[in-house]
Design a protein around this nucleic acid. Structure first.
Length: 829
RNA sequence: GCCCGGGUGGCGGAACUGGUAGACGCAAGGGACUUAAAAUCCCUCGAACCAAAAGUUCGUGUCGGUUCGAUCCCGACCCCGGGCACCA
């Protein structure tokens, strides 16, 4: 018997796939196209188990769809710009480009060893000018459309990474990459107007029915829409109005003071000439120093009276204006109307500073004197003059409309989402294609001059500061407008720019004349199934959605959403924790492939947990998966010759032998189960367990030495059907072994291009079925009946059982519940 | 605080979205083969009562409810994971 030499088999099959280019795709018609994509990796050096899991899941889907008859686009590439390359370059005294390309070549070898069915002809690396030149073009076009702009703002600065971070890249006040504290700084930078798309990004969440609900929730939260009104409060002392934003215009009559942020532009003016001047000055000195992050950690409400008053837009009453530490300058207008009775923060503040509380929403019996906290719910309006008696929801529009007519308010929608800051003060990224000219200002590089090449002769600065600024050959440029000497922009683009459109470029990776070939993109996109980690739930997925909409509006593509279905796979854990070098719990894929082969690693990872769940790595578990593959191999290899000589799919119609009948039934049940488990939520773990059951059954029907026994078995070809089906089914999980066994069974063409097996419904039904018998809902026995037995037969059979008789003796049957094919419940008293 | 997930044997996980809880695998125990080991094969494996079997009772985070019947539906609560958070 041929032994299962996985090393030899895997090398051989990988070479064969490569030489015959089985996974190359063109995509003939829109209808037959299927796009399976996994999030491309950052070329960090070596792949880890998270990659193995991600790409194995994607590969199963790609292989399955291919066998279903689709033209499957399954590409792979490299998210190749980024900070680690620079850090490694400093550490190892090399160049980021060299480090990156070496990593790519090593990791590519690793991916090939996993037997992933990629069309490597479409491979791309984002650090290649043939890729980023188009991104620079997009940037210029965004600039023309006003979607890209430059502004000075408070930015998030990571000292250790020496760069600015986008809001999305700050997690809990720390850098998403290195976890060091993020500082606030004033700085000039480039922004993309993602807020222009806030409404559409939010609306379209509803269309993403193939996305996990929790990812959508995160995106919705991040966009953070709130609807309300902007209301003007006139300040006589300044002879101008202060605008406030509120979601509760219905509580306007409950306003007893106003709070503004310490950074509010009017904060200092309001106290001029009042007795509060000094108090305000010391308060501002204290709170302006405190960063936004620290301030939000301070739960204690603190504020100071400005000495000035605003006029209530309805009553004309004087409303004292305070500067308060809890008011944020970068949300709404930086000023809020305070309604202590109906806002908890205002309530706490009013208690501390002894300010009046006025109840204007009446939820039943509540009275001000007995309030222990603010009432933030609904109710009827009271103490609101002409608006009394209105339902508060209704009052929101009524009051806003009323004020609008008087010209002191307007309906307003506010988003939490901020524009995307894309400037990075780093070297290893795509240069932002603009030129600073002393006379013309900021001038875009003419598109005919693209790409602005990232110079590869830069000396990497060990402090981490970008070398571009001091590289004269790069910085010195002519102004495209006036021709005078000018300076090139030295910031590079956030690397999330590259990953925001790579999935489009895969449709036409070799297109030289344009970023995208519309016809091809429209044929393949949207991605039918995207697979990746949950950690990108906001960052990458939100940016990609934004880019897709922008490129649509620019006319490059027709779709509005890039990813039709999204599968977020869980992490790979060891000893209950995420694998990390510092914890010393890393399991190296290479080592596992060496020991057990890629097929075993793939199988274990698919079998140990459903894809969305975290997966606990188990050294014993992988042994078990390997044992199963050995068993699978033996069942076929030990009977190789016999099986090969049976004509494929030839059956004698009636196999009377009960064992054989059972095998056929199991075969078809397995085809059904595996197909449905893959279709329905990608339950690979249960699909594999079904295959295990089939192989176990076949094993039981072999002789002690593993060979086929009876002559009848040889004639009927039932075994051949079983092993052939099992091999086809398992090929999506363990392609190398399946391919080898497929050959062993006498087949010529690659198993990857075979048709997915189809079950025969007539064969999966059992002749006799077990019916559970319950007395008063408790299981008391089990009977076997013919599959088409009716209720009366089942009941009569059940009543003949001694066990059942025992339980109903001396009692009368009050009711009979029969669930066909499943259970009989006798209610007795 | 708010919004999503999720709590099932010693462990990873199954269970047709109301119908025999624990498939499949791991670990464990026992046995066969072997001079021995490995490998392989067979048996047992939620808990309790019982010498054992038959059997009975309990059992899907907790407490209630609906139902002939609940891991599944409803209500209250506890715990774990994730997201958002002085967002006006």
């Amino acid at each position: 018997m041929k032994v299962y030499n996985f090393r030899e088999i895997e090398d051989k099959q990988q070479a064969k796939w490569e030489s015959t280019a089985v996974f190359r795709t063109e995509g003939l018609s829109k209808k037959s196209c299927y796009y399976a994509l996994e999030m491309f990796p950052y070329p960090s050096g070596r792949i880890h188990m998270g990659h193995v899991r991600n790409y194995t899941i994607g590969d199963v889907i790609a292989r399955y769809k291919r066998m279903q008859g689709f033209d499957v686009l399954h590409p792979m590439g490299w998210d190749a710009f980024g900070l680690p390359a620079e850090n490694a370059a400093i550490k190892h005294k090399t160049h980021p480009a060299k480090w990156t390309y070496e990593n790519i070549s090593y990791m590519k070898k690793q991916l090939k060893q996993l037997g992933l069915s990629y069309d490597w002809d479409r491979e791309l690396a984002t650090c290649n000018p043939s890729y980023y030149r188009w991104e620079q073009l997009f940037f210029i076009q965004m600039l023309e459309r006003g979607l890209a702009y430059r502004k000075k703002s408070k930015i998030n600065w990571c000292e250790s990474c020496q760069t600015v971070l986008a809001n999305e890249q700050v997690e809990d006040g720390k850098c998403w990459r290195c976890s060091s504290d993020v500082l606030e700084q004033e700085r000039d930078g480039w922004f993309l107007r993602i807020t222009d798309y806030a409404e559409e990004l939010l609306q379209d969440c509803d269309k993403l029915t193939g996305w996990p609900e929790r990812v959508l929730t995160m995106q919705r939260n991040w966009i953070g829409k709130s609807q309300g009104a902007e209301i003007d409060f006139f300040v006589p002392a300044l002879n101008q109005s202060i605008k406030v934003f509120t979601t509760r215009p219905d509580t306007l009559m409950g306003v007893t003071f106003m709070s503004i942020a310490p950074e509010h532009p009017l904060a200092e003016q309001l106290c001029l000439g009042t007795a509060q001047k000094d108090a305000v000055a010391s308060f501002l000195e204290k709170w302006k120093k405190v960063s936004g992050k620290e301030r939000s950690e301070t739960k204690e409400k603190e504020g100071v009276f400005t000495g000035s008053y605003a006029r209530h837009p309805l009553t004309g009453e004087d409303v004292p204006i305070f500067i308060a530490n809890f008011v944020l300058m970068d949300y709404g207008t930086g000023a809020v109307m305070a309604v202590p009775a109906h806002d908890q923060r205002d309530f706490e503040y009013s208690k501390k500073y002894n300010l009046p509380v006025r109840l204007v929403i009446q939820p039943g019996e509540l009275v001000v004197e007995r309030m222990e906290k603010a009432w933030e719910g609904g109710g009827k309006l009271v103490n609101s003059g002409q608006f009394d008696g209105l339902d508060n929801q209704e009052a929101k529009t009524v009051i806003t409309d009323y004020l609008s007519r008087k010209g002191v308010a307007q309906p307003k929608t506010t988003f939490r989402l901020r524009d995307w800051g894309i400037s990075r003060q780093r070297y290893w990224g795509a240069p932002i294609p603009v030129i600073h000219c002393d006379s013309c200002g900021i001038v875009a590089v003419p598109t005919s001059d693209l790409p602005v090449m990232l110079p590869l002769d830069a000396e990497i600065d060990p402090t981490g500061r970008s070398p571009l600024g001091s590289l004269d050959s790069f910085v010195k440029a002519r102004c495209p407008k006036c021709g005078s000497e000018a300076r090139r922009e030295t910031d590079t683009m956030d690397t999330f720019m590259e990953s925001s459109w790579y999935f489009l470029r895969y449709a036409c990776p070799h297109e030289d004349n344009a970023p995208l070939d519309k016809e091809k993109v429209d044929r393949w996109l949207p991605v039918d199934q995207y697979v990746g980690g949950i950690e990108h739930a906001i960052l990458h997925l939100l940016y990609s959605r934004f880019f897709t909409k922008v490129l649509r509006d620019m006319g490059y593509i027709s779709i509005s959403e890039p990813f039709k279905n999204l599968l977020t796979q869980g992490m790979v854990l060891k000893d209950g924790a995420k694998m990390s070098k510092s914890k010393g719990n890393v399991v190296d894929p290479d080592e596992m492939i060496q020991r057990y082969g890629a097929d075993t690693v793939r199988l274990f990872i698919l079998f140990a947990a459903p894809p969305e769940k975290d997966l606990e790595w188990s050294d014993q578990g992988i042994e078990g998966s390997h044992r199963f593959l050995q068993r699978f191999w033996r069942v076929i290899a030990e009977n190789e010759e016999t099986l090969r000589n049976i004509p494929a799919w030839a059956f004698s119609e009636d196999c009377a032998d009960a064992d054989l009948k059972a095998i056929r039934r199991k075969t078809h049940q397995t085809i059904k189960k595996v197909t449905e488990d893959i279709e329905r939520r990608f339950q690979f773990n249960t699909a594999i367990s079904a295959l295990m059951e089939l192989i176990n059954l076949l094993g039981q029907n072999l002789s002690r030495d593993g060979s086929l026994t009876s002559e009848q078995r040889l004639r009927t070809a039932v075994f051949k059907e079983a092993v052939q089906s099992a091999t086809l089914l398992i090929s999506v999980f363990v392609p190398h072994m399946a391919e080898e066994l497929w050959e062993l069974l006498g087949n010529q063409d690659s198993i990857a291009l075979q048709k997915w097996p189809v079950y025969d419904p007539a064969l999966i039904e059992e002749d006799v079925i077990a019916i559970a018998v319950q007395i008063n809902g408790k299981l008391r026995g089990e009977i076997t009946v013919q599959k088409d037995a009716d209720e009366t037969t089942v009941k009569d059979n059940a009543l003949q059982e001694t066990k059942i008789q025992k339980h109903i003796k001396g009692k009368t049957i009050k009711k009979v519940i029969y669930v066909p094919g499943r259970l009989l419940n006798l209610i007795v008293v």
